[in-house]
Amino acid sequence: MHRRDRFRAQSILVDRMLKNEKIDVMYNTILTEIRGENKVSTVLLENVKTGEIKEYSADGVFEYIGMNPVSEFVKDLNITDEEGWIITDNRMKTTIKGIFAVGDIRKDAVRQIVSDGCIAALEAQHYVESLQEKGNNLSYV
């Protein structure tokens, strides 16, 4: 189901999904309720244009709601752009020493958190080591 009348994702991905025989697309539709006891049994779906609500059988639910950054926890640090994406350099460093960001929270295009995480871990290690070299008494956690 999709809450709009068309997709805004990359056309190649949309085309691939639409050609998949196992997927039935419901446009202008939102999930309003998940029902079941100890497991999903039905869902209530609402047509956003007509307001009509229908109940459908379901064995499970996978929700994916776009790409909005969850960065409220750093909003006062001034390391995000106006949309909330954390800004880093290519070594995952923010403008605040010792604070790194990885994965889809970053300003740049969608990244793989594994490779970003590896880069950030190495940079964090170098940062801590540089503090220790300066005489700070820090230990690794």
Rank of each mutant, 00 (worst) to 15 (best):
residue 11 S to I: 15
residue 124 A to I: 02
residue 110 V to G: 10
residue 71 S to W: 00
residue 79 I to T: 03
residue 84 G to I: 05
residue 57 S to P: 11
residue 49 K to D: 12
residue 17 M to V: 13
residue 99 I to R: 07
residue 78 N to L: 06
residue 55 E to G: 02
residue 28 N to K: 15
residue 122 L to W: 09
residue 53 I to S: 02
residue 116 D to N: 02
residue 53 I to N: 05
residue 120 A to D: 05
residue 37 E to N: 14
residue 122 L to A: 14
residue 94 T to F: 11
residue 52 E to R: 10
residue 96 I to A: 03
residue 123 E to V: 09
residue 51 G to A: 06
residue 23 I to M: 08
residue 87 I to S: 04
residue 117 G to S: 09
residue 76 D to K: 11
residue 66 G to A: 09
residue 84 G to H: 07
residue 72 E to I: 09
residue 33 E to A: 15
residue 74 V to D: 01
residue 31 L to N: 03
residue 141 V to E: 14
residue 109 A to Y: 09
residue 88 T to E: 00
residue 13 L to S: 10
residue 113 I to G: 14
residue 50 T to Y: 12
residue 94 T to W: 05
residue 65 I to C: 00
residue 104 D to R: 06
residue 130 S to Y: 06
residue 111 R to H: 10
residue 138 L to I: 12
residue 58 A to Q: 02
residue 14 V to Q: 09
residue 23 I to K: 01
residue 81 D to Q: 09
residue 109 A to K: 15
residue 30 I to D: 00
residue 49 K to Q: 12
residue 134 K to D: 12
residue 81 D to W: 10
residue 120 A to P: 02
residue 45 L to T: 05
residue 81 D to A: 05
residue 13 L to G: 03
residue 12 I to G: 10
residue 141 V to M: 13
residue 80 T to F: 04
residue 119 I to K: 12
residue 39 K to S: 13
residue 6 R to N: 12
residue 61 V to Q: 04
residue 124 A to E: 02
residue 20 N to P: 02
